[in-house]
Nucleic acid binder design. Sequence first.
DNA 1: ACAATTAACTTGCATAATGCAAGTAATTTT
DNA 2: AAAATTACTTGCATTATGCAAGTTAATTGT
Lengths: 135, 135
Amino acid sequence: MQKFRSTCPIASALDLLGDKWSLLIIRDLAFMGKRTYSEFLASEEKISTNILADRLGWLEENGMVSSQQDASNKKKYNYHLTEKGLDLLPLLLEIIIWSDKHLPEHIAEQAKFFALQIKEDKAGVLAYWRAQLSQ
Amino acid sequence: MQKFRSTCPIASALDLLGDKWSLLIIRDLAFMGKRTYSEFLASEEKISTNILADRLGWLEENGMVSSQQDASNKKKYNYHLTEKGLDLLPLLLEIIIWSDKHLPEHIAEQAKFFALQIKEDKAGVLAYWRAQLSQ
DNA sequence: ACAATTAACTTGCATAATGCAAGTAATTTT
DNA sequence: AAAATTACTTGCATTATGCAAGTTAATTGT
């Protein structure tokens, strides 16, 4: 029933984001330009429809994501990262650096290129994506 | 059956660490000076014994943690972060910064102080803990 | 205008992950 | 030698996730 297990910042972040899907939705919003339910659904990891609906609701309830009805198509909802969601970018970049270093045989070439850019200029990459995603 | 859902670095890291407990064990090893099963068990989040045994095995199998029998007490096993585990420190620091900023009413005072230090000198904090934990 | 399609879900049920309480086995301490 | 410690395992309950099908409202195609 309680949302948080403790007052530890790491445990608390995990209570909000520590499942197999939430950060992938954040990734899709951050780096893949995805905005809608059906776009998230089409990601290669193949999230199920009920879990996606549940996670979008959870992320919105907890202020990491916001949604608004599409202006030109009333049945579409566009999701965006809030400031709280955008502030997960540094964390995502660190994950990419870690996976690039420790799972090199496994990850995609494209990801390695991204990791290289991050290692060369983390602040620059961060600024670029923040600008991209703001507004 | 498959370990990884995709070749995405974020999805892959989540496949290894994306549960409610693994990163807390890493935290205990990194910042709390904990080394043994019963010390992890005593953490305030109250992990169950079977889950703890399972996660320690998983983290060791996947090279993030190593264990060795205690020299002076044969029934004790001391766990340590490997290089792969140590390289999660930057990620942990980013999580702390995020929680400090976005869950301020929830996290402990002590964590806020730690977050402040990280914000003032991230590289320094990182270097300090790496030195602390190496060897 | 009407039928087909799209978009965003919900529902019901199966499987897998987690949680809880108790038990075990090998030391180590008293 | 008995009691306590340490690191687990086992069995079962609960919760989370996964899968397939169905629903509702809006939109597009003819």
